[in-house]
């Protein structure tokens, strides 16, 4: 990878043969690298330093003395219960999203559309209607006298009572984050060369074996990034649980939000955020691992 530009390097080294090898990195390349400087500074100021501030608040008490109390507050029954429920609901939603999105991506791939901008459009378009409003619309659909129950009643079927339950929250999570599962999986599937699949079939693999040994492994990077892109926002949401869970169901996101916006307790809020980030870091490590793997196959 270090030899990204053999031609330019060759020309430059030939011109500057007398000079030391160090100088052979062309000045052009250097000035191009400078273009990343504003972004580098921006990231340092608005990503790195703010995260350090969260660490600082999370690891100190109100007077600025070092403490681990904020972190251990996660063990308090209310917080522990909220974190546990958040983990459970976000894992369930991630699994449902995967089970819905993968077959969909397979079907879309088999349709062989000319360009995939249509799919991106269909999936992204709902975002132009505010996500809170869309989630509120689910109240209308799920309510006692809502759309679903009206239909069920007309069919003389028993009513569905899921508004203000964890099920409604899972539905809200699946609804809001499904696009983030569909797009990466579809993108990796669409890139798989048909010849690779045909080769597997020619070598005697049946449909299932082809899927298990060829298609699924090749789509793994998309699956992994889909999983993180659904799992992280589900784990940390507070708006979906507020709207669809009534006031009784509290997720870890709700607790952190309250610490900051209602109670003004930044140290506790930061401490709980650090605990959340640890969970996210674990999933990031997984992503990094699979990203590396996929880079290897790309190079091939």
């Amino acid at each position: 990878m270090s030899n990204e530009n053999p031609l330019r390097n060759e020309i430059v080294t030939e011109e500057k043969k007398t000079k030391k090898k160090k100088d052979s990195a062309s000045t052009l390349g250097k000035s191009k690298t400078l273009l990343a400087t504003p972004y580098g500074l921006w990231m340092a100021a608005f990503i790195i330093i703010p995260l350090i501030l969260v660490l600082y608040y999370g690891l100190t008490d109100g007077n600025g003395n070092f403490t681990l109390d904020n972190l251990s507050l996660i063990a308090n029954p209310i917080n522990r219960k909220a974190l546990w429920l958040s983990l459970k609901l976000s894992l369930i939603s991630t699994a449902i999203c995967l089970l819905l999105a993968y077959p969909l991506a397979l079907v879309l791939k088999s349709m062989k559309l000319k360009d995939n901008s249509f799919i991106v459009m269909v999936v992204i378009l709902p975002m132009w209607m505010n996500f809170l409003l869309r989630t509120i619309a689910w109240q209308n659909i799920l309510e006692k006298n809502g759309v679903i129950n009206t239909i069920l009643e007309a069919l003389h079927l028993p009513a569905l009572n899921i508004i203000n339950t964890p099920t409604a929250i899972v539905l809200g999570m699946v609804y809001n984050f499904l696009p983030f599962m569909i797009l990466p999986i579809y993108n990796t599937l669409a890139k798989i060369d048909d010849n690779v699949i045909n080769a597997a079939r020619d070598l005697g693999a049946n449909g299932w074996v082809t899927f298990k040994r060829v298609i699924f492994p090749l789509s793994m990077p998309g699956v992994i990034s889909g999983i993180t892109m659904v799992f992280v926002p589900s784990l940390t949401t507070f708006a979906i649980s507020t709207i669809l869970g009534g006031s009784k169901i509290v997720l870890i996101g709700n607790i952190i939000e309250q610490q900051f916006q209602k109670l003004g307790n930044w140290n506790t809020g930061s401490g709980l955020s650090i605990v959340l980030m640890i969970f996210i870091l674990v999933s990031m490590t997984l992503v990094a691992k699979y990203d590396k793997d996929s880079e290897g196959t790309n190079a091939w």
């Binding site: 990231m43 926002p233 939000e257 955020s273 996210i280 990031m284």
Partner: peptide, 30 residues
């Protein structure tokens, strides 16, 4: 070169992968 690029891309991924609530809180603290 590969190493600085990997670091930059790593930091680029932070706001994508981190929870919005943490990004929001951290910026507010800043």
């Amino acid at each position: 070169k590969k190493v600085p690029r990997t670091i930059m891309m790593g930091v680029t991924n932070i706001p994508m992968l981190n929870a919005d609530i943490v990004t929001g809180i951290s910026l507010m603290l800043l």
